[in-house]
Lab assay of single mutants.
Amino acid sequence: AFSSEQLARLKREFNENRYLTERRRQQLSSELGLNEAQIKIWFQNKRA
């Protein structure tokens, strides 16, 4: 489960760009304390 802070950040990123570069995913992973797979799957689900 994502914290409300993490979700807000993911939604902001998604609004700016529906697709993440690998580098951006790595940055978000480290900033949010999530693993890259969690972020990747969140974006895939959000696009679906």
Rank of each mutant, 00 (worst) to 15 (best):
A1L: 12
A1S: 12
A1F: 12
A1E: 11
S3I: 02
S3W: 03
S3M: 04
S4P: 14
S4N: 12
E5R: 07
E5F: 08
Q6A: 07
Q6K: 04
Q6T: 07
Q6F: 02
Q6H: 06
L7G: 02
A8L: 09
R9Q: 06
R9A: 11
K11H: 15
K11T: 15
K11A: 14
K11I: 15
R12S: 10
R12F: 10
R12Q: 14
E13V: 05
F14E: 02
F14S: 02
E16T: 10
E16C: 13
E16G: 05
N17I: 04
R18C: 10
Y19C: 10
Y19R: 07
L20I: 09
L20S: 02
T21W: 04
T21Q: 04
T21I: 03
E22V: 14
E22Q: 13
E22Y: 08
R23S: 14
R23N: 13
R23C: 08
R24H: 06
R25W: 11
Q26F: 08
Q26K: 14
Q26M: 12
Q26D: 04
Q27N: 07
S29C: 07
S29F: 03
S30R: 14
S30A: 14
E31F: 04
E31D: 08
L32M: 07
L32Y: 02
L32F: 03
G33P: 01
G33C: 07
G33D: 07
G33N: 09
G33E: 06
L34G: 01
L34A: 04
N35W: 05
N35I: 06
E36Y: 04
A37F: 12
Q38H: 07
Q38W: 11
I39D: 01
I39S: 00
I39R: 00
I39N: 01
K40C: 14
I41Q: 15
I41N: 14
W42L: 03
W42N: 00
W42P: 01
W42D: 00
Q44W: 09
Q44M: 09
Q44A: 13
Q44Y: 10
Q44C: 09
Q44R: 11
N45G: 07
K46P: 04
R47G: 06
R47Y: 08
A48Q: 11
A48I: 10
A48D: 09
